[in-house]
Write a protein that binds this DNA or RNA. Structure first.
Lengths: 288, 288
DNA sequence: GGGGTCGAGTTGTACAGCCAACCCATGCAC
DNA sequence: GTGCATGGGTTGGCTGTACAACTCGACCCC
């Protein structure tokens, strides 16, 4: 319809994505205010010259990002004007570091090949007895140690990782160039106490509390590509998430979670001072 | 078509929701295996006797829950058979505790009314100088102290909270009975050290690390209903989230919370030419 | 002023169809 | 065997239509 410069420019692939990007820009710029109402679907459809279905697809993206509400009978309302980070900024330390204006670094401390244990076979969907590649890396922000990353790769991926230079900053990006794509990930966030490796590399006291993120990532075909455990120094990161009645992805888990009844081991582990130390050099990931 | 008992029964509201529930049940029961392929959309449509569009809506739900992949050219693949918890199990301590088979408890330690500070006014979208209700509660799991909850309510909600008995277990459920619905929430997870209140109530050492979740919740109309900060003893909970290239909600934040630039209103002319020009006030971003 | 009714406006649900893009197994050429 | 082309199967994207369910302000009655 009207070609007055409000066209879904951007050349970003599909129609609904361009519309979504355009609306997101307007929202984060504050054009509708916080708590303000968006135009009706019909009005947007006419404005962009597309069908209402396409507009609805675009708005579904914004809703799932937590930018707008959505309910029957009334126009959509702007929930917040916060910038929403992309999938890669969550998955890749490098990509995230750059997005906050810091210079990411990574130093490979060790790389080994060994037989996978039972849990790793299940999580990475490998035959029992398969080998895996295990890495330990120190990640830095503008030279400052910030995080310890322990990753387990299946052979297909590990063989590529083993070829990378020891000071490679972004494994994710380099793997992408080898055709290994990260598409989905499950994350589990909790608190853990520093073991001797942690304290040595991060320069903190042994037993000091760290923020832990365990992750299991898959490629677009649903094939697992990594199992990772990241431990952050306190005060360096916070994880944020939006959820809603419409579509929720986050959940809270009881900690003594896998197997056994929750009734068993209460008082025993309530106040773990600095155990957890040597119990796993293998990253545990979400869900068992 | 065939009425052979594979009909989307369940009486759970809309068609696509019933289909989604039916498929979810089949997946978590392992009917397709982990890594197995789902039937084609067309086959499912014929099976359930609905249109392909409805099937796609149902599958979109499962995809956003992280149960299945989705890409052009090939059938959907089962990602995992993990149970996905509901929105309320994340939002409400009580609802979560019950879902893991423990008995939740809550004891109001203090309730006060005081003027809101600047940040609270912005976050709760209140006029400067408005009053807020502030609560401090100790939450328990089967009698064991687990979490400290500090919540700030706007007057509309606080007036109701102030009427609740001091030993009420679930504020969320009681508020629901008063017509106050929680629909969307932003969560930020990081690590914090126990202050004197924390150590006294939780029975831990002062300065011990706790897992912190800060939350801002809104009702279906996008109006803020609470601002909360929960501090968990280590080893009691873990937060899990799924994200994907398709739709991501989680992100990672640099901690020295970049005190954001006051959003400039330049782009106000990006607005779609529409009515309602006078209804926006606070351009303040929704950040916590 | 208080309270209820009504209706225009808006989003949700469901249907149908068409084509493009893509994956992958098959089979053929070399 | 290896590599490449082909083609069927499958999902993604977009359009159009129709109706249901819901919100909310305007309006009327008392």
């Amino acid at each position: 319809m009207q070609d007055d410069g409000a066209r879904p420019v951007g050349a970003g692939g599909t129609l609904y994505r361009r519309v979504a990007a355009d609306l997101r820009e307007a929202i984060t710029a504050g054009s509708y205010g916080s708590g303000g109402r968006l135009p009706a679907e019909g009005a947007l459809a006419k404005h962009y010259g597309v069908s209402r279905g396409t507009i609805r697809q675009a708005l579904a993206v914004l809703r799932s990002d937590g930018l707008v509400t959505s309910r029957r009978g009334t126009r959509r309302v702007v929930l917040g004007t916060a910038r929403v980070q992309s999938f890669s900024e969550l998955l890749s330390f490098t990509s995230w570091a750059r997005s906050v204006g810091e210079e990411p670094g990574g130093a490979m401390e060790s790389l080994a090949r060994r037989p996978a244990d039972e849990r790793e076979c299940e999580q990475l969907r490998l035959e029992p007895g398969s080998e895996v590649y295990v890495t330990l890396r120190l990640r830095t922000l503008s030279g400052r140690p910030v995080m310890i990353e322990r990753t387990v790769y299946p052979p297909r991926v590990g063989e590529v990782v083993a070829q990378l230079p020891a000071d490679a900053v972004s494994h994710t990006e380099l793997l992408l160039e080898h055709g290994i794509v990260f598409s989905d990930a499950d994350h589990t966030i909790d608190l853990v106490h520093a073991d001797t490796d942690d304290s040595r590399l991060l320069g903190c006291a042994a037993g000091e509390a760290l923020l832990r993120e365990r992750r299991r990532s898959t490629d677009p075909a649903g094939v697992p590509v990594e199992l990772s455990e990241d431990r952050y120094l306190p005060g360096t990161v916070a994880f944020t998430v939006h959820n809603s009645l419409a579509a929720s992805a986050l959940s809270r888990r009881h900690h003594p979670v896998p197997e056994q009844h929750p009734a068993e081991q209460h008082a025993a582990d309530r106040r773990i001072p600095e155990q957890h130390a040597a119990d796993q050099q293998a990253p545990g990931a979400a869900e068992g």
